[in-house]
Structure formats: C-alpha cells, structure tokens
Simulated assay, not measured.
Amino acid sequence: MKTRSFLCLFLCWANLLNAQSKQGDTHDTTYYTSFTDKLVSRGFLDQRYSKLRLSDSEDGSNLTYKPDNVLSLGTGVSYGWFTFNLSYGFGFLNSSKDKGTKYFNLQSHSYSQKNIVDLFAQFYSVKPSFKTQFFGGSYQYVFNNKRFSYRAAFLQNEWQKKSSGTFLLGAETYFGTVKGDSTIIPVSNPGSAGELKNHTVRFYEFGPNIGYTYTLVIKQHFSVTGSLSVSMDYGRITFESDVGKNYKDGFTPNFFTRVSGGYTTNKWALNAIWLNDNIRMKGKDNARKLNIDNGNVRIIYTYRFNTGPKFKKKLRFLN
C-alpha cells in the first residue's frame, strides 16, 4: 500500500509539471526545436544508486552503507506534456545481487520549459536489520527558458541547436531516518562513536538553492550539458544512543550535479546522463557527519515518430 501511494503521488507530480510546460510555451526556435507534437519513444539502460556515509573525525570512524545498485532495462514514451517510463531489473543483469537486501528506490525528475522538479522516496533494509528511509524534493526555476532547453538534454523531446546557458533558483527539503538493531557504527570501532552505540539517526532540512547550467553544442548535433546547484539548508540531525540524544541545528551546503552528453538528429538521439544529489549534515560537535548520495546513470536511445491527424485527434487532451 505504501509503495502504491508513493507511485501515484510521483506520477501526479511529474505529469502536472509537464502539463504546465504547454502553457505559454514560446521559445527562440533558432536555439532549440520542440518535438512535443511527435511521439517520442525511448529505450534505456538505467542504474539508480544510493550511498550513506557516517564518519567521526575524532576517532577516525568512516563507514559507508551502500545497498546493491540494480541495473534496469527500460522503455518509455513522450507526447505533448505526457511522459511515461517503465524499467525492470532483470536477473541476467543482476546475477550478483544480495538476496538479503530489500529496497524501494523511486526517483522522479520532471522537466518543463520553465520548471524542474526532483522527487525522492527510498526504503532500504539490509541484513542484519539495518534500515533507512529517505524522502525529499527540489524545485528550480529556469530563467533563460526561451533559449535553453533542459528537456533537450534530459528528456530528448527537444533539440538544442545552439549553445546556451541559464541561471536556476529554487528551494528544497529532505528528511529521513537511519536505524540499526544495536548500533549503526559497530562497537568494534574504537572511540566515542562506537562506544555511544548510536542506533538511530534522524534528520530534516530545508532551504533555498541556486545554480547554473550550460549546454555546449558542436555542429548542431553533438552536445554536452553540465549543471551544478548549491543550497544552504537549515535543519536538524539527531543521534539517538543508549544514553540519550545528541542533536544539532544549523546550516549545511548541499550539491546537485547533472551531466548529459550525446548526439541528436531530427529523428533520433543517443544520450548518456548522470544525476547526483549530495546531502550533508553535521552533528553537535561538528565531528560526526552524515553524507547521502542519491543518483542515476542512464544510457538512452530515442526515436521520434511523426503523428497523423487521427492520432492527434485521439490524444488532443495531451496538447
């Protein structure tokens, strides 16, 4: 029930933001071309990942909890404002997968002409009874949206023909829990972190972000896009141990990186994409730190089909 609820919520968010992209969708066609009137099909190889690091500079503890990263094969379509992708981690792609790890990793990255929305919902359970829950969301406004297309780089239903860049401005929020049956940091590690037996870490944060992105286009067809956003979030992290709670309120910076590169024509496109959201928090003494990386690596082949009057009439509600 929990998984279905989050899936419905994510699909509603993604399609709502894409629907808004059709309202006032005017742009400089010498910089990029839109294919929202065509049926855009795609096949892709996808790997989502999550990594959690706990460290203590006083005793030298530095532990990384990294569940299995499932390699998935997927397909999808876009038409008008609507985009739907479906992927599955087939056994022949993940023969070494740890059977003791249970996971649910849902990421939604929605790109309209003027808005970007990223949503995360993740649940991991790793033997012996180590569990994490993570939720978050980020919004950004694209200022130079008449000459710069995010959808060209990350959705392929547009084509950036001339180099261009843009500033980004928005806000974000994240919260989550890390739990262990006895201690998150093993007692065998010497020093205060191990001795306190921290069995639970809770955190939340929110704040503004600012960024810049640029697409370099070579001879119209080759392109490389790089995007970096920096936030200064205010939040609280709480370490719960056998002897009580240790918490800290304060500001910490986060970083969201996006990279895309590939080749585009009027009919098809081949792209490689990397997304990484880095979240950082510090404990009361500034020695104990929690870092979370969530990301996605994807290789995509896209083909665009022309649509006739009958097809457009049946799906006119998408335009």
Score class of each variant (00 low, 15 high):
A19N: 10
L7K: 05
T83P: 02
D98A: 15
Q23H: 07
D25I: 08
K22T: 09
L63G: 03
D25H: 06
N18F: 04
P67V: 15
R42G: 15
T26L: 11
F84G: 03
F10A: 06
K97C: 01
Y65S: 15
C8N: 05
Y32I: 13
V77M: 12
D68P: 00
L71W: 00
F44A: 03
T75M: 08
Y88C: 03
F84M: 09
Q23L: 12
Y32S: 05
G24D: 10
A19L: 09
W13V: 13
T64F: 11
W13S: 14
L71N: 06
K22R: 05
V70Q: 01
A19M: 06
Q23K: 07
Y65T: 14
N62V: 08
F44M: 09
S50L: 15
Y88R: 08
K66H: 01
D28C: 04
N69Q: 12
L11W: 01
S21R: 09
N69W: 07
L54S: 11
T29P: 07
D68R: 02
V40S: 15
L11Y: 01
T64M: 13
A14Y: 00
G43R: 07
G76I: 11
L54D: 15
L86R: 01
Y65W: 11
G100L: 05
F44K: 04
D28V: 04
Y32N: 09
S72N: 14
W13H: 06
C12P: 00
A14C: 00
T101M: 03
T29N: 08
T36V: 09
S41F: 12
L16G: 10
Q20G: 13
L39M: 14
Y88S: 12
K51P: 12
G74N: 02
L93E: 04
S34V: 03
K38F: 09
T30W: 00
Y88W: 12
K51F: 05
D56V: 14
V40L: 12
G43K: 08
Y79A: 08
S57F: 04
L17W: 02
C8W: 02
K22Q: 13
L45W: 09
T101Y: 01
G80L: 04
S50N: 13
A19E: 04
K99Q: 06
W81Y: 07
L63P: 01
D46A: 13
S87K: 04
L39G: 14
E58K: 09
S50E: 05
L93S: 01
S72D: 14
T29C: 03
S61A: 14
S34L: 07
L7H: 01
Y49E: 13
S34G: 14
P67C: 15
R42H: 03
F82I: 06
S87D: 11
F82V: 05
Y88V: 07
L86K: 01
Y88H: 09
S96Q: 12
D98K: 05
R53M: 06
A14N: 02
S55A: 14
T26Q: 08
Y88M: 05
S87H: 07
D98Q: 10
N15W: 07
Y65H: 13
S21P: 12
A19H: 09
D46C: 08
L17Y: 02
L93P: 02
L54T: 15
L93V: 05
N85Y: 11
L52C: 04
N15A: 06
N69D: 15
